[in-house]
């Protein structure tokens, strides 16, 4: 099964741009809420948790779509190192967008917190209460958030490089149908 259209399928493109906005917002919300003591801290936390679960659900859906619909091949003349970086960063992004919400959920569970998505909607714990596990998961949540942000920057820079400099159809495979 291979992709001959040169495009990602429509559902993949919609999910890509929707999640791009959600994940970027999530990174700024997360980093902003832990650096604030104002009421911002409260309302950002109240967005952070349900948004994280929404991203988890969308990421699983997206992974399923991606596995059923192969991505268009990269340009044949792309240096092998860039190809490797492209594949590695894509799978890293998939891994992080699934791992981050799960770590957040597990970390609150380990800290003994009720995992509240709203005033009344509570998720069950997915990790036993354990302060040491909390500390490890909580620090991991930060480290991986930084990694996710750096990967996003690299991903965006690479997309712009393909779109503005190489003009090789890689960026447009995620944006619009190109004229043949």
């Amino acid at each position: 099964m291979s992709n001959t259209t040169g495009m990602f399928v429509l559902s993949a493109r919609i999910l890509h741009w929707l999640m791009a906005v959600l994940i970027l917002a999530m990174l700024f919300i997360g980093i902003g809420m832990v650096a604030s003591v104002s009421e911002r801290h409260e309302w950002l936390i109240h967005i952070h948790k349900p948004l994280g679960i929404a991203i988890l659900i969308l990421a699983v859906l997206r992974l399923a779509i991606r596995l059923r619909n192969p991505a268009p091949p990269l340009p044949a003349d792309l240096p092998w190192l860039q190809k490797l970086a492209a594949h590695a960063s894509h799978w890293l992004l998939y891994g992080l967008m699934i791992a981050m919400p799960l770590i957040g959920w597990a970390m609150l569970s380990a800290g003994g917190y009720p995992v509240m998505l709203s005033d009344s909607l509570r998720l069950p714990p997915i990790f036993p209460t354990n302060a040491i596990a909390f500390a490890i998961l909580r620090q991991l949540h930060t480290v991986l958030a930084m990694l996710l942000f750096l990967t996003f920057l690299a991903h965006m820079a690479a997309a712009l490089y393909h779109g503005l400099i190489r003009r090789d159809g890689v960026l447009s495979s995620m944006t619009h149908r190109r004229k043949p």
Binding site: V34, S36, E42, I132, A135, R138
Partner: peptide, 18 residues
């Protein structure tokens, strides 16, 4: 909100020490 934020920072430090 400040109590919540500062307690969380304190909690992370002491559990990380643990």
């Amino acid at each position: 909100p400040a109590r919540s934020a500062a307690y969380a920072a304190s909690y992370l430090r002491r559990t990380s020490e643990e």
